[in-house]
Design a protein around this nucleic acid. Structure first.
Length: 262
DNA sequence: ATGGTGGAAGGTCCA
């Protein structure tokens, strides 16, 4: 079972690219962030025609929005209203086989890494705190969480650790928050499960460069984590870098994990 | 210190 995560940056604009990618890679499930579309405009029919008969989505006009597209039936769908903002950054499903899947779009956090000067940064930190709080009440078995976390925690999750230490996405304060949450549940970071920490690994490259591939100033903002009981079922993880190089791409590559099914 | 680009909008905000 291959589960993918992709910040699509407008599901309506990139429907043809989504089509191409899911036909090429044949994911069983793909989770989207930044769909940027209210539910009444979500292209549900077109997505079902791609073979994803089970679709769950929450969107809003212009900003945010998350979706889970699945070929595998789920028995339950639900969402958390994170930070009480009603801003469509979380959606979850429980599959018939018991696997739980949570899709998150953590706030980017603005430019200034100071909660007193920048309320977006405050929101980001509160959001991660709330993730920790909410999962402390869950049973934390048979669970995958993934999405655009907007944090690159490790030195080699960014192109220059030194130059990004004060840049939102790699500052010590948000990294510590994320690690607190990660350690609390003993989440397994599946990209680093398969690729050692001394290797550079990115899932996002800015639009604001002449040649994203040549300059290669990337960051690993997208994450797929599993609870420890799933360790024995982990098969592989992928970052499909070529998806960043398509025509009219998202600034995020598609990422995925493969699990042995029972 | 700033701008660079892209998306949803049809202003500007957000990433």
């Amino acid at each position: 079972m291959e589960i993918a995560s992709w910040n699509i940056n407008s599901v309506r604009l990139r429907l043809p690219l989504l089509h191409d990618i899911v036909k090429k890679y044949n994911f069983d499930v793909i989770c989207l962030q930044e769909t940027k579309t209210p539910d009444e405009n979500f292209p549900e029919k077109e997505i079902k025609e791609l073979g994803f008969n089970y679709v769950s989505f929450r969107g809003e006009k212009s900003y945010n929005g998350v979706a889970i597209l699945s070929k595998i039936p789920f028995e339950e769908e639900f969402f958390w209203n994170m930070c009480d903002k009603n801003d469509k950054r979380h959606i979850a499903v429980k599959f018939d086989n018991g696997l739980k899947l949570h899709n998150f779009y953590i706030p980017a956090g603005g430019d200034v890494p100071d909660v007193n000067l920048n309320e977006k940064f405050d929101h980001k930190l509160s959001f991660v705190d709330e993730m920790k709080q909410r999962f402390s009440k869950e049973d934390n078995k048979n669970t995958v969480i993934l999405g655009d976390f907007n944090i690159a925690p490790l030195e080699h999750d960014v192109w220059s650790h030194k130059q990004l230490l004060n840049v939102v996405s790699h500052t010590p304060i948000e990294v510590e928050k994320l690690n607190n949450f990660k350690n609390d549940v003993h989440w397994i970071d599946i990209h680093r499960h398969f690729v050692s920490e001394d290797q550079k690994l990115y899932s996002w490259w800015s639009y604001r460069s002449k040649d994203w591939e040549a300059s290669d100033r990337g960051r690993r903002l997208d994450h797929l984590w599993v609870t420890p009981d799933l360790a024995k079922r982990l098969k592989s993880s992928k970052i499909y870098k070529e998806t960043r190089g398509r025509q009219r791409p998202s600034d995020h590559a598609v990422t995925s994990l493969k699990l042995d099914t029972d």
